[in-house]
Design a binder for these strands. Structure first.
Lengths: 345, 345
DNA sequence: CCTGCATCTGACAACGTTGTCCAGGCTCTA
DNA sequence: TAGAGCCTGGACAACGTTGTCAGATGCAGG
C-alpha cells in the first residue's frame, strides 16, 4: 500500500486552493484562474458558480505561487537607516505612494547605520525577488549588489551615493546647502562659526562639512580646529562639543548644525545660555518656527527625494531609463530668526 | 518538431537557478540545495565546488519558490495610517526590530485613514501569505479578515481595537490619559476647558473625548457645546475651532488637544495671542520642552505599543498564545509649563 | 572475498499558480 | 445540412525550490 507523503507542517493552515474551488464549483482549474484574474472567456453563469465557491471556501490566491510563475513580484524594497527618524518617514511615505501608483507593495527595513546589516537586508530583499530596490546606504561599498543589478533588479540610491558601483542616485545638494547656510551667517557679520556634524564617513556629513569649509574660505576666514566637531551624534557628545566651542577666550558666535539629530541637542544647549548665539541648522524641524527665536534652517525635501527615486526606479523597470545618473535636488534656506542674530561680541 | 515553449517575459532577467549551479558544478540539484541551506551530508570537496559555482554564476536562492514549498514566508505585514506621521515611525521601528529578532521581514503600507484602502492592503498582504499581520485599523469592521485568521494568519491590532471580530489588540489608555490630563487642568483652577479632537469615529479620538467628559463630570463642570471641536484635523479647521473657543464673552482658559496633528496647530494659534492660555496635549512632540512655555503632554509610548503587538504576534505564531486579549498600556503626564498656567480671568 | 553499515548523492514528486494548446459545442452562412 | 469560425472550458507543463527515498560508494569485520 503506497503511503501518502505527509504534508510539511501546517502549511498556511490548509488553505483552499484553486483546485478546491474548482472541484466545489464543478469546473476546471483554469476556469477558476480566469475568474480570479478577471480574464475573459467565462460565461456569467460559470463565473457566478466559481465566485460562490470562492466565497464559501474563503479562498485567496496564493501570490507566492503566482510570483513564481510570473516572475514579477510587484513589490519593491526600501533599505533605510532608521524608520523612526522623522526625516525618513516622509521619504518612505513618498516611495510607498509611488509604489502604490504602480501597483506594488513596499518591503522595508532599517540598517541602523550598519553596513553589514544593510547588505544582509538588501540581499534578503533580492532573494525575495523584489522588482526593485531603493537604498539609503549605510556602507560605502555596494559591489555586492552587482550580480543582482545585472540580474535585473532595478536599483536606486537615495540621500547618499552608491559606493564602487555605477548606479542611479538621488541626493540633496548637501554641499551647496551647507555653503549657503554658512554664507548666511557670514553675511550677518559672524566670523567665528562652529560646525557640528556627523561622522565624515557618511557622505552627507562629509559634503556638508565641505560646504562649511568652502563658505569659510569664500569669506577668507581660516577655520580653527576647535570650531569643528565631527563625531557621533549622540546627545552627550554633541552637548560637550557645543559647550566647548561656546566657551573659552574666543568662543564661536554662531553654530551651523549638520543634521536634525544634532540640531535638537544644540538648541537645548543654546537655550541654557544667556548670550544669544546664532544658529543655522541643516534639516527642518517641526515646530522650529515656534521656538524663541525661530530656527533658521537649510531644508531638504525628503518627500521629493523619495518620490524622485521611486519614479526613477519604475522607469528603470519600464525600460525607459537606461543610463545611471546622479540627481541633486536643491535645498532651501528658511530664515526664522536664529540665523539672523548678529555676533554677540 | 516539438516547439520549445517561449519563456514568459524576461523572468528576473534569466537568473541562474539551482539547476544551473548543479550543472556547472557537476552535481545533483539536491546537493546544491543542501549547500545553500547548510544541511549536513556534503563532503567539503563537493561543497567547495558548489560554492565556487554559486559565486561564479551569481546565484541567489529564489525565496518565492522556497515559500511556496515550505509554507512560511518569514515576513509579517504592517498596515498603518501614515508612515510619515512621527507617531508611527517609532512604532514601525519597534515592530521591525521584533520581526528581525525572529528572522522575519516587514512589509508595510499606509491606509491613509481610508477603510477601503486598509482592507485592500491587508488582503494583499494575506495573498502574499505573510505569517502575521499587525494592523492599525482605519475602519471599524474587520470581518473581512475572518477567513484569513481562520486560515492561520496571526493578527494583532494596535492603537485602535478591531471591529466586529475577536482579536488581540494593544492600545494606549486613551480614556485614562485624557481624563488625567483634563483633571490636571482642573486642578490648576480651570473650569472653562476646551477640547479639540479628531473625528469620533476614530476609536482613540472617541476615548479621549470620553476621558475629557469624565474629568469634567468628576469636577462637576457642565460641558458647553462651544468648548468642543470634533472634526477633521486639517490645520485650517483646527485653527478656526481654536479661535472660536478662545473668543467671545466666556472664552475657555485652557485647551486639551486630542493628538499631535491638532497640537501643532493649537500651539500656533496660542502663540499668536497675548493672553496666556493653558494647554495639555495628547501625544508628546519633539522640542515640546523648548517652547515657551514648555508643552505639558500626555505621552504614550509608541515603541512599546509596537513592540508589545509584535511580540504577541510571534507568540501567536509559536502557538503559545491562544486567547485574544485586549491590552492597555498606561500613558504618562509630563508637566512642562503650559499645563500649569493658571486661568487668565 | 563477501556482508553489513554508514555516509553521501541524486531522481522524483509536490507546493499553487498561469500560459499554451486543443476539444467540444454552439452559431452563422451558403 | 455541412462547413467554417467562434466561444468556453480543461488537460498539461512549467516556474524553482525542498522532502522523501533509494541508489551508490567506501570501509570494516568475518
Amino acid at each position: 500500500m503506497p503511503e501518502t507523503p505527509r504534508r510539511p507542517e501546517s502549511r498556511y493552515g490548509n488553505r483552499p486552493t484553486m483546485k478546491d474551488v474548482a472541484a466545489r464549483a464543478g469546473v476546471g482549474l483554469k476556469t477558476v484562474s480566469r475568474v480570479v484574474n478577471g480574464e475573459p472567456g467565462v460565461t456569467p453563469e460559470t463565473e457566478r458558480r466559481v465566485q460562490e465557491s470562492i466565497d464559501a471556501l474563503g479562498f485567496r490566491r496564493n501570490d507566492s505561487a503566482r510570483v513564481l510563475r510570473k516572475g514579477r513580484t510587484a513589490s519593491i524594497g526600501l533599505v533605510l537607516e532608521d524608520l523612526a527618524d522623522p526625516f525618513y518617514g516622509p521619504l518612505s511615505r513618498a516611495v510607498e505612494e509611488v509604489a502604490r501608483a504602480h501597483g506594488a507593495l513596499l518591503i522595508n527595513g532599517s540598517s541602523a547605520e550598519d553596513p553589514d546589516r544593510e547588505q544582509e537586508l538588501a540581499l534578503a530583499l533580492c532573494a525575495r525577488r523584489v522588482d526593485g530596490l531603493v537604498v539609503i546606504p549605510a556602507g560605502d561599498d555596494h559591489r555586492y549588489l552587482e550580480p543582482e543589478i545585472k540580474a535585473g533588479i532595478a536599483t536606486v540610491f537615495v540621500d547618499r551615493p552608491a559606493g564602487r558601483i555605477e548606479a542611479d542616485c538621488v541626493l540633496s545638494d548637501n554641499f551647496g546647502g551647507a555653503r549657503a547656510g554658512v554664507a548666511h551667517l557670514v553675511a550677518q557679520g559672524h566670523r567665528r562659526i562652529g560646525f557640528i556634524g556627523d561622522m565624515p564617513r557618511i557622505h552627507t556629513a562629509a559634503e556638508r562639512l565641505r560646504g562649511y569649509r568652502a563658505a569659510m574660505e569664500d569669506a577668507g576666514i581660516p577655520v580653527q580646529e576647535a570650531w569643528m566637531s565631527l563625531g557621533a551624534t549622540d546627545p552627550a557628545r554633541v552637548r560637550r562639543a557645543a559647550e566647548q566651542m561656546l566657551s573659552g577666550a574666543a568662543p564661536v558666535t554662531a553654530v551651523f548644525s549638520g543634521n536634525n539629530r544634532v540640531t535638537v541637542t544644540v538648541i537645548r544647549v543654546l537655550a541654557e545660555r544667556d548670550r544669544q548665539t546664532a544658529l543655522v541648522a541643516f534639516d527642518d524641524l517641526e515646530l522650529a518656527d515656534l521656538l524663541q527665536p525661530g530656527v533658521t534652517v537649510v531644508a531638504q525635501d525628503a518627500a521629493a527625494l523619495g518620490r524622485t527615486a521611486a519614479e526613477r526606479l519604475f522607469r528603470q523597470l519600464d525600460g525607459t531609463l537606461l543610463v545611471p545618473e546622479r540627481i541633486e535636488l536643491p535645498t532651501r534656506l528658511i530664515t526664522r530668526g536664529s540665523g539672523e542674530l548678529p555676533p554677540a561680541d
